[in-house]
Amino acid sequence: MENEQVIIVRDLVKKFGDFTANAGLNFHVDKGEIFGFLGANGAGKTTAMRILCGLSSPTSGLVEVAGYNVKTHAEEVKKRIGYMSQKFSLFEDLTIWENMRFFSTVYGMNKTAFKERGEMLLRKLELFEKRNRLVSTLSLGWKQKLAFTVAILHEPSIVFLDEPTGGVDPITRRQFWEMIYEAADNGITVFVTTHYMDEAEYCNRVTIMVDGRIDALDTPAKLKEKYQVNSMNDVFLALAR
């Protein structure tokens, strides 16, 4: 089942009154893939991502995530995805462990499974000894890494990352991407939006949205070849201008 498709989007249209935010999107994402979702601000990325997460329903078109239609089976979809955004990582006035326990219960993990997996993930981050510290005492980089850990705590089939590395230093970004790769190796599909073009290079495949349409969708190498440029940055500029 190498080519199992965990996200299928066909002719997705989303309109807000007269304004069309998504004008007929078509793409799919394979299991275990790291899928980069790029686009200028206002290109319609966030709208599409909200629809994929079941936060908003499409005007028309078919959207299937983790094998379920988001329009009719949003609840099933929600159980099988993880989500993390730059804006909010974790509850600051709760400790690391309390945050993890809260989200594990919300995602329906049983206690023993949580203890085992939670401890394992925290030890990997070398945060297990500090698990009773308030999240507010952590630096932004640590918070983001921890937030990612929490997002994959319940072993979702897909994790959505909305600009996860915004405002984070290059070393932490590097470590963050190592975590992403590890998750992907364990079969978790990663759907990531970013404004950093070097990060786009790390993705298996990349889409670039312009004005509500998908103008390019391929591996970074092929995109560079197609537009005859040396970096994803130039691909982006060629398209989004």
């Binding site: 936060l55 929600k78 989500y83 993390m84 955004s85 989200f103 919300v106 995602y107």
Partner: peptide, 13 residues
């Protein structure tokens, strides 16, 4: 304001 509402709405809650 914190953005946690979004995370909660995406969750099975």
């Amino acid at each position: 304001e914190l953005g946690s509402m979004e995370v909660l709405l995406i969750s099975p809650l």
